[in-house]
């Protein structure tokens, strides 16, 4: 437990990466959109929020590159490193999701005075505050751990391993799409979606097991990765 806490502490020491940069990036996107909305007549809805999600993906990739050789080089157990890192990511997603949820709530009330939809976005922001928090949390954590997995693949198998992985993924996707198409599956899927439209919060719930799998996969990869 102590060791895992040390890993969390290690991540938290990178204040710039965890506490400053994501908000600077999101903030600048927000300011730009705010400016546009101030001049525009009609309501402006923007996807600027995606910038923080993408930052998470990159952050997940970078955090392993930055901290894995450091931690394991200083004889941290790999398992403790992975658990501590995932815990940091979960904690960070939880706190960031609260901030986004609150900003969304403020936006819903005020529109920032310029009728801007930046944090509170139709489908994504349906449901109560908890549901909105869960959506942000689910996406951010998935992005972070997904980035971490990509980095783990690179750490274990190198550049070629990464290429092989992505080629493999696209092959699998192609096969799935091909099978769905040849079996006239798209209609069925479309019908199912129309009859049981999932909420964003439900999608976030579906995403969660995937995130867990990403985490386990990273652990399996790093277990046998050299420094």
């Amino acid at each position: 437990m102590n060791r895992i806490r040390s890993v969390v502490h290690m991540h938290m020491k990178d204040r710039l990466g965890w506490f400053i940069l994501p908000w600077v990036i999101l903030g600048s996107s927000f300011v730009v959109n705010l400016g546009i909305a101030a001049y525009a007549e009609e309501t402006i809805t923007t996807g600027g929020l995606a910038s923080i999600y993408i930052y998470m993906l990159v952050g997940g990739i970078v955090s392993l590159v930055q901290t894995y050789p450091f931690a394991v080089g200083f004889t941290m157990r790999r398992k403790d490193y992975v658990i501590g890192t995932l815990a940091t990511m979960a904690g960070f997603s939880a706190y960031s999701a609260i901030v986004l949820m609150l900003l969304g709530a403020i936006e819903k009330e005020t529109g920032w005075g310029v009728d801007l939809n930046f944090f509170h976005l139709g489908y994504l922001s349906e449901g109560n505050l908890l549901a909105q928090w869960w959506v942000h949390f689910g996406i951010m954590l998935n992005m972070l751990v997904g980035g971490f997995l990509i980095s783990s693949i690179h750490r274990k198998f190198g550049k070629n391993g990464m290429f092989a992985f992505f080629i493999g993924i696209s092959l699998i996707l192609s096969v799935v799409i091909f099978l769905v198409s040849t079996n006239d599956g798209w209609d069925a899927i479309g019908r199912w979606l129309r009859d049981n439209p999932p909420t964003a919060a439900e999608l976030s719930t579906y995403l969660f097991p995937l995130t867990v799998i990403f985490g386990f996969a990273s652990h399996l990869l790093l277990r046998k990765a050299a420094v």
């Binding site: 806490r5 040390s6 290690m10 020491k13 990466g17 930055q66 080089g73």
Partner: peptide, 27 residues
């Protein structure tokens, strides 16, 4: 164990004090 190697990596954003602070919890 403590292994100090020539090629030891440190996170880019770390200051000297951060390295010491984190090391104090590792060892």
């Amino acid at each position: 164990l403590c292994f100090i190697k020539e090629s030891q990596k440190y996170p880019d954003n770390y200051r000297v004090i951060d390295v010491l602070d984190v090391s104090s919890t590792f060892f």
